[in-house]
């Protein structure tokens, strides 16, 4: 039995009468790549925000890396990384400055910062761009940099909210290579997406419709259950019933 790093039980978020996420229950184990799928407005981002401590759940329970999300927010923050939907590095700072800043606020020492930033720049092939402003980089590189920065402090879990929006297929592939590398190191990946090809890359996926979890299994098993050979079909069969419009 592998170590469980994310555990939720009937986690719910209401905004007035609107139930953004409705009693979601699931476990994620260490090193797993866990995909969160759903149409726009299905409640993916809300669920993720609750898990990161950005949003307080209305009811239900959850633990992240063994810490309760109501009481141990500070401990959780030290153990997670987060990459939001919006591109979120500072465009007016250089690549190195961004790395040093985010490493710095996670409390890395100067020696760690130095070795980390060198390793990271080399890994991403950004040696020539290290002193350029991030704003001048192509989007694909920014996203890869953004991911690397999100895991610079070697968190137990990293949350990625639609990390590859607007990125070309080739770069997306490279992005996923980075995710696999991180997963091999034992970092748990929690990723939301609407790309079905990306869903195939996940160990397990969870499909949300109207705030509820409609299916949760490995891509292979899901295709078997829904008697089809593409994730697209699985998703359409489930999402067709959605009442919420975008």
């Amino acid at each position: 039995m592998k170590e469980v790093v994310i555990q939720t039980e009937k986690l719910t978020k209401r905004f007035g009468d609107f139930i953004a996420t409705n009693e979601i229950t699931f476990d994620v184990t260490k090193g797993e790549i866990f995909g969160f799928l759903g149409a726009n407005g299905a409640g993916k981002t809300t669920a993720m925000r609750m898990l990161c401590g950005l949003s307080l759940p209305s009811s239900g329970k959850a633990t992240i890396a063994g810490f309760d999300i109501y009481k141990k927010t500070e401990e959780i923050k030290k153990n997670i990384g987060y990459m939001s939907q919006k591109f979120s590095l500072y465009e007016d700072l250089t690549v190195l400055e961004n790395i040093r800043f985010f490493g710095g606020i996670y409390g890395l020492s100067n020696a760690q910062l130095k070795s980390k930033s060198e390793a990271l720049v080399t890994e991403l092939g950004l040696d020539k761009e290290a002193k350029k402003l991030v704003g001048s980089l192509p989007l694909g590189w920014k996203q890869k940099l953004s991911f690397s920065v999100a895991i610079i402090h070697e968190p137990k879990i990293v949350f990625l909210d639609e990390p590859t929006g607007g990125v070309d297929p080739l770069t997306r592939r490279q992005f996923w290579d980075l995710i696999y590398k991180a997963s091999d190191k034992g970092i748990t990946i929690f990723v939301t997406t609407h790309y079905m090809d990306e869903a195939e890359y996940c160990n397990r996926i969870c499909i949300m419709v109207d705030g509820k979890i409609e299916a949760l299994d490995s891509p292979t098993n899901l295709k078997k259950v829904f008697n089809t050979n593409s994730m697209d079909d699985v998703f359409y069969q489930l999402a067709r019933g959605a009442k919420r419009k975008e």
């Binding site: 401590g53 950005l54 606020i105 996670y106 949350f159």
Partner: peptide, 8 residues
């Protein structure tokens, strides 16, 4: 958002 998620 990123800053709020960080332990800072």
């Amino acid at each position: 958002e990123i800053l709020l998620v960080s332990p800072f």
